[in-house]
């Protein structure tokens, strides 16, 4: 009973996703195919990765607005290093990942040690990374190196003509690792404790500082990885990529059942959130008649509904608590 109740937001997300998928499959010919499903994962891998990082941050009660910009910065750094400086693709990827992780750690340290609101710090990080990306190159830089193309072409063959592409694999892999970390490691549980009640977590003797820096580091790394996937998928680096993506990521996390106030939720929900996002987008493309901006309207509506649902649930438990406390 209580298990069911606790998971209502997640179950609601799953229900919405199932309804969307079944509805679209019935409405549009060929929607219900493996290829469409794989495309869904492939196209939304960058968003999915930033959302996974964002899940950590939101679970810990924070927010990271820099993810889209960091992704763009990484993509352009990779492109420029490979194309203009002749770096080996792997070295370029590694450097970009290191850079984004460092950015995340830096922001985490500022947030924790200087006690500045994450909203402001990551907003600054967002401008910083975007600006840096545009300084490196104003225009998108295509990547033509053979090594990079080979990397992007990797995949696990599924049927004769169908592969699970590397981008989808990396996304799923990251999701798996994130799920493992949040559920089965002490630091993962510290994230939940921190988001649930920072003061209490501190008094329980948990290492709050380390946990806080950790979540922003994870988010930085995930954004970097999203940048890597972006270059693999697009074969280019683009300094203007991912504008507004941080908000999409937040939306996906919340639609996936994670409380924006922290402490409750998880990465599995985020997967569902991202899939809902992607399914709506794909369905609208399939339809062909609708403006693609309808995606936003749909997501906006869903987001509102989910927040209302969470509100209803938390206030229900809150009232129960109040009854016990007050006289």
């Amino acid at each position: 009973m209580s298990l069911l109740r606790r998971n209502i937001p997640l179950l609601a997300s799953v229900a919405v996703y199932a309804a969307l998928y079944v509805g679209a499959s019935l409405a549009y010919h060929h929607f219900c195919s493996l290829r469409v499903l794989i495309n869904l994962f492939e196209e939304n891998a960058p968003l999915g990765l930033t959302a996974v990082g964002m899940t950590f941050v939101i679970l810990a009660g924070g927010i990271d607005l820099s993810v889209g910009s960091v992704m763009a910065l990484c993509s352009i750094v990779i492109a420029v290093l490979i194309e203009q400086h002749g770096w080996h693709p792997l070295a370029a990827l590694a450097l970009a990942l290191g850079l984004s992780t460092l950015l995340g750690t830096g922001m985490g340290c500022i947030i924790h040690y200087l006690q500045i609101a994450p909203f402001i710090v990551t907003l600054a990080g967002m401008f910083f990374a975007r600006g840096l990306a545009l300084i490196i190159s104003v225009e998108p830089v295509p990547i033509r190196a053979a090594g990079h193309a080979w990397l992007g072409g990797l995949g696990i063959p599924l049927t004769g003509q169908l592969d699970i592409p590397i981008t989808a694999l990396v996304f799923l892999g990251a999701l798996f690792v994130a799920a493992y970390v949040t559920v089965l490691t002490p630091i993962g549980r510290s994230v939940y404790a921190l988001g649930g009640d920072e003061e209490a977590a501190l008094l329980m003797g948990l290492r709050i500082g380390r946990t806080k820096v950790f979540v922003y580091t994870v988010s930085g790394f995930c954004s970097g990885l999203a940048g890597v996937l972006f270059t693999l998928y697009q074969s280019a680096g683009n300094p203007s990529a991912g504008v507004g993506m941080e908000l999409d990521a937040i939306a996906a996390v919340v639609v996936g059942g994670t409380l924006l106030t922290g402490g409750v939720g998880g990465v599995c929900g985020t997967l569902i959130g991202v899939l809902i996002f992607g399914t709506i987008q794909t369905a609208i493309i399939f339809d062909g008649r609708l403006s693609s901006w309808w995606t936003r309207v749909a997501i906006g509506t869903l987001l509102l509904l989910f927040v209302l649902l969470q509100r209803a649930l938390t206030s229900a438990t809150g009232r129960r608590k109040a009854q016990h406390v007050s006289g």
Partner: peptide, 19 residues
């Protein structure tokens, strides 16, 4: 005021940090 994390399970509240 109770200084444990209300959103976590009782078990975790008891053992977090040395689970």
């Amino acid at each position: 005021e109770v200084n444990l994390v209300r959103t976590l399970s009782v078990a975790e509240n008891l053992l977090l940090g040395r689970a």
